[in-house]
Simulated assay, not measured.
Amino acid sequence: MLSENRAVAALRVFLVVLFAILVVFQTLSLPGQFRHQAQVNPEDADLRWPATFIAAFVVLCVQVVVVATWQLLTMVKRDRIFTTAAVFWVNLILGAIAGVWLVVGGIFVWVVLQADDPGVPMVLLLLEVVITVVGLLMIVLRALLQRATTLRTDMEAVI
């Protein structure tokens, strides 16, 4: 149990660091980068705002995953993870993953239709497959959580 507490504490520290970095990227780094790209390449200036909004949305989805993970860790610490409330947070994570999957898929299609080099489409395809695997893994984990919740509820009713 001691190692679990240390892992939860370490994970929380890194979740805070990750969230802070994401806020910096969302508010400063990404908009600044797209502004700079529009100045350097005026022919691509019309992509500045769509790229900024898409990047901010993807970062927001990751922030949702961080917050939901924090809530699940709180439930683990309080030994309340096997409740229906935990399924809500897992569903929120799944929704964020689905949002990113749709955005990356759309970008993939747009890039494939305009690409003359297979490099970027292949990277986007790899990213889409990784997101798909993570999403499917979360669906399996949600099913396991639901089964464990049902078993725990049944056992509590017997005891």
Results as ranks from 00 to 15, higher is better:
residue 143 A to T: 11
residue 103 V to F: 02
residue 35 R to M: 13
residue 131 I to M: 03
residue 132 T to W: 11
residue 25 F to R: 08
residue 132 T to D: 11
residue 34 F to H: 10
residue 69 T to D: 02
residue 150 T to E: 12
residue 144 L to Q: 15
residue 120 V to Q: 11
residue 6 R to T: 12
residue 14 F to G: 07
residue 35 R to P: 11
residue 93 I to G: 06
residue 59 V to C: 01
residue 22 L to C: 09
residue 70 W to R: 07
residue 149 T to C: 00
residue 72 L to A: 00
residue 112 V to Q: 15
residue 2 L to A: 15
residue 16 V to I: 12
residue 93 I to V: 06
residue 122 M to K: 10
residue 158 V to W: 06
residue 34 F to L: 12
residue 86 A to D: 01
residue 75 M to F: 02
residue 46 D to V: 14
residue 99 G to V: 03
residue 141 L to S: 10
residue 142 R to I: 01
residue 89 W to K: 07
residue 148 A to D: 14
residue 104 V to T: 06
residue 14 F to C: 08
residue 3 S to I: 11
residue 71 Q to E: 08
residue 45 A to E: 08
residue 120 V to Y: 14
residue 148 A to T: 09
residue 127 L to N: 09
residue 131 I to A: 06
residue 104 V to M: 02
residue 95 G to M: 05
residue 154 D to P: 07
residue 75 M to P: 03
residue 43 E to I: 10
residue 82 F to R: 11
residue 42 P to F: 01
residue 121 P to V: 03
residue 92 L to K: 06
residue 108 F to M: 12
residue 7 A to H: 09
residue 159 I to A: 14
residue 106 G to P: 07
residue 114 Q to E: 15
residue 134 V to R: 02
residue 113 L to K: 12
residue 37 Q to E: 12
residue 134 V to N: 02
residue 126 L to E: 15
residue 65 V to Y: 01
residue 143 A to P: 05
residue 91 N to I: 05
residue 121 P to W: 03
residue 113 L to A: 11
residue 92 L to Q: 08
residue 102 L to S: 12
residue 1 M to C: 10
residue 36 H to N: 13
residue 28 L to Q: 12
residue 128 E to M: 12
residue 107 I to C: 04
residue 37 Q to V: 15
residue 76 V to E: 07
residue 40 V to I: 14
residue 148 A to E: 14
residue 62 V to P: 01
residue 107 I to Y: 01
residue 30 L to Y: 08
residue 73 L to S: 04
residue 138 M to A: 09
residue 68 A to L: 00
residue 31 P to Q: 02
residue 68 A to W: 02
residue 27 T to I: 10
